[in-house]
Design a protein around this nucleic acid. Structure first.
Lengths: 208, 208
DNA sequence: TCATCTAGTTAACAACTGTTCTCTGGATTT
DNA sequence: AAATCCAGAGAACAGTTGTTAACTAGATGA
């Protein structure tokens, strides 16, 4: 199935990725709606007009960045939520996952947090869609849990959204703590753990 | 105590407010980091250089907007959280408050949601500080509740942050639903109500 | 009344923006 | 080997940006 790319398409994809990387870097200190096309091409070392060979506009590049940041995350979510150990362990594992992801891809996380409510509508829409997919997947995993007996689909989705939003808040807090001390990060982890725990307790006593 | 302003200072404040209003309007379709000083003065009908009589920079104006958007909200939060009726009623009242505020000041709400993780650090800091104050105040009100017996300060603050974040998420959802039908808004209200309820149940069964 | 103060104006600056059109040289296809 | 394709370069465009300096006219205070 895998077709070895010609040296032409390979070079094109390389440039495209360089544009994405440069944009992501520049977006650490501004938002997408103020990012200039020339700014990005300058950072890559390529002519401004070359940009149009890859993206129609900056908004278009932003949508591609959403795919890059969230697209590959779906399997990870699935497996993390579905590990059927104790609730405590599941929470600890989820928070570890978030902390690790923030550590490994801080710029991606910042981009999502920033542009989720940012000034570029197509990007906001793309993020909303991806998060809705996450919620649907979490709901699917929750449904398998015996504790979800008697729960309506609506209630399961409401809980799934609560979890997803909570994950995003936690990721954002880890991001802020990245420039802090190890103790700061530990504090974030502990608060997030207790919040998740409280939600799980609410779930357990929910009048299904 | 109130000192009648001279006609000079009065006119100055009027222009300053016009700048803030114009900026808020322009920010409905972009983020602060892309807002131009000339863009704002043009919208007001004033020379670009007049801007400097009121703000050092756009970031400075942004911080003033944070104060305008959140500063006057503290008393409302206090009284809403502290009404000592049943938990159900308290939740309904809180969500009504949020829906009403989003209806009355959509641009302010959008601004806060957008710039909380936006590209302008001083503004992010100002928002974070105000939200931390909210959390502290909510914590203070929660502490008065007999149900909080045995709770540590840390746990109370963790719960307060959970409530504050949940309020922001709800406000943002109401904002999206503003352009939708009445049924959309009703659905947001119902989901938010159940989420708050679940958190309250978790609180009730928390191992203090 | 007269001197001072100051919110807002005007003009000019170098630097930057997105977009268009034309061109080129190396990869691809025939 | 020849014809085609196409990612990227180069130059030019009108329009925009933040910031400076010197100004004016009306309010303020002595």
């Amino acid at each position: 199935m895998s077709h070895t790319l010609g040296i032409r398409q390979a070079q094109k994809q390389k440039t495209r990725q360089a544009l994405l990387d440069a944009a992501l870097g520049l977006l650490e200190e501004q938002s997408l709606s103020s990012l200039g096309l020339r700014e990005v091409t300058r950072a890559v070392g390529v002519a401004p007009t070359a940009f149009y060979r890859h993206f129609r506009s900056i908004a278009d590049l932003g949508v591609a960045l959403v795919e890059e940041a969230l697209g590959s995350l779906h399997p990870m979510i699935r497996t993390t939520v579905s590990t059927a150990d104790s609730s405590e362990e599941r929470i600890a594992r989820a928070i570890e996952l978030i902390a690790g992801h923030v550590d490994g891809y801080p710029a991606h996380v910042r981009f999502i947090a920033r542009e989720r409510h940012g000034g570029v509508q197509p990007v906001r829409d793309a993020i909303r869609d991806q998060l809705a997919r996450f919620a649907e997947e979490v709901k699917g995993e929750l449904a398998k849990d015996p504790e979800s007996e008697g729960w309506s689909d609506d209630d399961l989705l409401m809980l799934a959204h609560l979890y997803v939003d909570q994950m995003l808040i936690t990721a954002s807090l880890f991001l802020e703590a990245l420039e802090g001390t190890e103790a700061d990060r530990e504090r974030v982890a502990q608060v997030a753990t207790r919040q998740m725990k409280l939600i799980s307790i609410g779930r357990h006593h929910w009048p299904a």
